[in-house]
Every structure is written in C-alpha cells, then in structure tokens.
Write a protein that binds this DNA or RNA. Structure first.
Lengths: 249, 249
DNA sequence: CGAACTTTTGACAAGCATCAACACGTGTGG
DNA sequence: CCACACGTGTTGATGCTTGTCAAAAGTTCG
C-alpha cells in the first residue's frame, strides 16, 4: 500500500540509508533516478540467466526469488527478496546474469537503466558505499545458506529459514514478528533448502507437533520462538541488523 | 617468492584492476596503503567469528579458507581464497566478523587498518567500484556453491570443485591449467562440499576410475577436462572471468 | 463445478553417514 | 636410528536420513 504518493524509490533508499547515511544531495540524486515501473505476476521473470543486463530492478512490492537450474533439471533457490530490495545490483555491474530472478507473488519492480545506477554509484560515493554494504550483507546471507544446506539436517534447515524470515520481515515493519505470511509453497521451500517437497512436508509437521510453529495456508505463526531458534541453530548476527556503518564512522 | 621487490599490495591491486581500471593516482594511493605483513602457519587464524575488525587483510602468499561452525560442531567451508585475494572486505565494512578465516597453508597476509580501506574506497571511486565488483563476484561464487551443495550429488559436487579450482588457479598464472596443487585434505574437501571425508574418498576414487583425474599427494591432474566438466555440471560463467567492466563502460 | 495446484500419506529404495580398523608417510624425541 | 604418535587416505559393514513414486485429500479460481 503506497503511502500518500511516496516517490517510487524512497523505500529502497531508506533501506540503503540504513547501511550508510546519504546527504540531502545524495537523496535528491537517488530519487531522481529514471525509473519505469513494471507490474509482474507471480512467476514472472525479472531476470533470466545469461541475459545481458539493461536495467537494474528494485523490488517495490511483492516478493521475488533468485534461483539456478542445475544439469539434471533440479532447481536451487539461492535467496528470497523482500520489498525494497535492489534486485541485481550484481547483474547491473557484472553485465551478464548468472542466475534467474522470478516473482514469488504478483508485484511491481522499478527498472532503472544500468548506466544510471553505475554512474550514481561513482559520482556519489555515499551511494556507492551503501551499495557495497548492501552487497556485503547479501554475501553474508549466502554464506549462512551454504552452512545451512551443507551442515544442518532437514528439520534444522527449515526452522532456520523460518527464523530468518521472521527477522527479515520484521525489518520491513509490515508484519507481526511472530506471525507472518511466507509466500512459498512447500516445493519452493524444498528448492530453497536442498530437500524435496515430500520431506519438507514431514519436517514442517514435526515442527508443528513439537509446538514450535503453526501454519494456516501460507501464514506462519511462531508459537515458541526460543524453541525454533534452538531447532534451527539460528543467530541473527549474519543479517547484520544494526546500522553497522555508524559504529565505525 | 616475491618478484624483485614488488610492492606488497601490487598483486592484490592487479586483481582489482582487472575488475575496474585505476588511474595512476588511484594506483599510487592504493600502493601507499599502510600495510603490515604477518606470517602465519597452516591453521593460523586470520579472522575469528565475532571479532571486531581492526584490520582488513589481503592474502599475499598461501591459501586460506572461510568457514562457519554450526550448532552440532559441524564445520562448513564457505569459500577458499587464493593469493592476491582481499580477505574480509566484509568484516572491514560490516565491523564484525560473521565467520572465521583460517590459513590452509603457511603464508603471509598484509594487514591494513580498516579505516584506511574504508577511506580509500570513499575518496577514490574507482577503487570503491573495483571493491564492489570483487564483492559481487564473490557473491556469484557463493550462489554457485549453494546450488552445488543443495542440488548436485556427491560425485558432481567434487568434480565441480575441481573444475572451479582449475579455472581460478589458472587466473593466478602460477599453475598449469590441468595439473595443480590443491592444498585441501579430503576432510576439508568434505567440509567444503557438505559431505563426510569417507564419502569424499570414495567419490574421488570413482573420478579416478573413470579416468577424469589422477592425484598424487595433493596434486590434482585433470586427465579429461571435458569429462570432468560434464561430471561436475560446470560452467565458468559464474566466475565472471572476463574483464566485465570493460564491456559496459 | 471442474481443472490445476498444493498438501498429505504410505511403501519402498538409495545415497550418504557412521563406526571401526588398518595402511601409509612424516616428523619427533629418546 | 628406532619407536612412536599423528595426520591422512583407504576399506568394509551397517543403518539412518532423505529421495522416489504413487495416490488421495484439500484448496483456489475461473
């Protein structure tokens, strides 16, 4: 729900500014970026692997996911993006997409010409710095996912994902911390955790049986946060939730 | 072996410049960064999880690896670093380490005060840009590792890792493309692929039996590159080997 | 009201883990 | 120089976690 004619990119900007403060001029330049809006349905492609990047997209409403397809046809979801996220800073700067980005729900993206994004990062060091910090946090999440998939059992992986979402969605300010809509089917959850849909189903049942969560449709309610944290071996440090640049600047 | 008194950071700089060109002044500023050298033995810690970052390290000689420890004591290696890599740009900018970095072999690191690294990225946009690109490539490698661990079987995972190393070490110019030293024990290989040492051993035997590789101590010889690429479902695109900024600038 | 998708259940199979033991090379101290 | 500990690679036996296949029950939506 767009607040009273808020500029398209203001939410994205707020997110970046949490990482590194902008000057008034930085803000003006950022909001003046030429962005064209595009509505997409669930399942619509934002970026396709091997595409040449022409636009850098910011996710304004709705959820999206990045994924890669491996040789035997298997799909691995490598991250989930929430409203306000820059999608494909990577593709904008690296020129060619090394993975796909698809909408999880219907939503809107703002498309900014790659050149404009590159230029603003160069001409406004604070903006470049915020993009670097944002990218570093993404990297931290990727590393945690590697550890999650590589070294935790199925039940823990799913509990961990539920914890991560609770924290990340809390950051968007639109969800109760312990009761949120997770727009993923069990098959998609499986693709995110390196499991199969059937097994995800059994593990979710196990979490429910133990009173850690309950689910209704795609709404997850966390009944026992501490228990879920323990089950998922979760610690929020890797999300770098605090305004990290403040402490060193 | 240091070439005729080459400046400490010149190799690291060359690596960054492949991503984005520096001006003569950028180069001078980069090489003038205050760096103190530190020798480390195999197994020595470069960074410990939860450390406050005071220095940003560049790996000058030797190999290192990043890893996380999960709740049950399992270890997951999330990346391997080769000479010339910046270790922990992430920790420098994010302030607190979310994972460990340990030496795989004996070697040397250059330690630069965090503040100096932050300042140079801000005052020299080309350097900041190169750091961003470097970080984005790291992210791309992390995503491929997620897909590798999450969706490929044991044999493919190992074949994939061997392919990745062949390409990355080729980039350092110090190794024959198809015959290189891989300073990882089978247990460490297991920690990098989300497997156990015993199973890694069996899968390596399978790769040898099929004539794809041969090994002697820790030297890997690729006997059949195409076969290994197929077995590992490998494609080098995710390493973004080309000078990517050239094509869009 | 039916088509398409998602969740759930059961039976069974397979890949990988676990545990234990042995072989081999290397370095170290007596 | 030998004895020994130590790390690493190798092998075998066994079992558990997770995958596979198939079908039924519930949900969404035109």
């Amino acid at each position: 729900m767009p607040d009273h004619k808020e500029p398209t990119l203001s939410r994205t900007m707020r997110k970046l500014e949490k990482r590194f403060p902008f000057s008034p001029e930085d803000r003006a330049a950022f909001l003046a970026l030429p962005a064209s809006m595009k509505k997409l349905e669930a399942g619509g492609y934002v970026v396709r692997e091997a595409d040449l990047a022409r636009h850098c997209c910011a996710l304004i409403t709705g959820f999206a996911y990045r994924h890669k397809i491996v040789g035997d046809g298997g799909r691995q979801i490598v991250s989930i993006q929430v409203p306000g996220d820059f999608i494909d800073l990577q593709n904008s700067f690296l020129g060619i997409a090394d993975h796909n980005v698809q909408m999880l729900t219907a939503g809107e993206v703002a498309m900014i010409p790659v050149r404009a994004v590159q230029d603003i990062a160069y001409s406004h060091p604070a903006i470049g710095r915020a993009m670097l910090l944002d990218t570093l946090v993404d990297g931290s999440i990727f590393r945690e996912w590697i550890a999650n998939i590589g070294r935790r059992d199925a039940r823990s992986r799913i509990a961990h994902l539920f914890c991560e979402f609770a924290v990340r969605l809390q950051g968007t300010g639109e969800h109760e911390p312990h009761n949120y809509r997770l727009p993923l089917s069990q098959d998609q959850l499986a693709d995110a955790t390196g499991l199969t849909g059937v097994h995800v189903n059994r593990m979710i049942q196990s979490l429910r049986r133990d009173g850690l969560i309950s689910t209704d449709k795609r709404t997850v309610t966390i009944e026992n946060w501490d228990g879920l944290v323990t089950a998922g071996d979760f610690s929020r440090a890797y999300l770098h939730p605090e305004n990290v640049s403040g402490q060193l600047n």
